[in-house]
């Protein structure tokens, strides 16, 4: 009885294997499917990625180290706490500073007034927090 079951089991797994081979064969014969897959896989962008794969892997390795993961998580929570409107104001504030710079070097008094603008000081705060979170 035992032996028969063993043989039966073996023939069943053999059959399963044959069925899987048939399915893979179906897939490999499906020219249009393969064309679609290769279109997705073979593009300028994917080639660039493949080209840079060694660097990317290195980068991923660094990013996924425990201590870095923790930092990234902190940064994410920080990012979540920022609202979009405020970020827009912040970027406007930065642009404003830059525009001023182009015209003439900013006078100390001008800089102090700029720094005391609520948008700018908020922005600086964010920057400081980011730097802290990064642990630098």
């Amino acid at each position: 009885m035992e032996e028969i079951n063993e043989a039966e089991l073996q023939s069943e797994s053999l059959e399963r294997l044959l069925h899987l081979v048939e399915m893979v064969n179906n897939i490999l014969k499906d020219e249009e499917l393969l064309k679609a897959i290769s279109k997705l896989v073979v593009s300028e962008e994917t080639f660039l990625i493949i080209d840079r794969l060694p660097q990317l892997i290195k980068l991923i390795e660094q990013l996924t180290r425990q201590e870095n993961l923790e930092k990234i998580e902190l940064m994410l929570s920080l990012l979540q706490s920022l609202d979009k409107q405020m970020l827009e104001k912040l970027s406007n504030a930065f642009k404003a500073i830059k525009a001023e710079e182009k015209v003439k070097p900013m006078s100390i008094s001008k800089m102090i007034t700029t720094l005391s603008e609520p948008e700018v000081s908020k922005g600086l705060n964010v920057m400081l927090n980011l730097l802290k979170a990064l642990g630098s």
Binding site: H19, L20, M23, I27, E32, I37
Partner: peptide
């Protein structure tokens, strides 16, 4: 691709 994979896996 999903559609074709479904179709090719039909018998299985």
């Amino acid at each position: 691709i999903m559609k074709r994979l479904f179709a090719d896996a039909y018998w299985d």
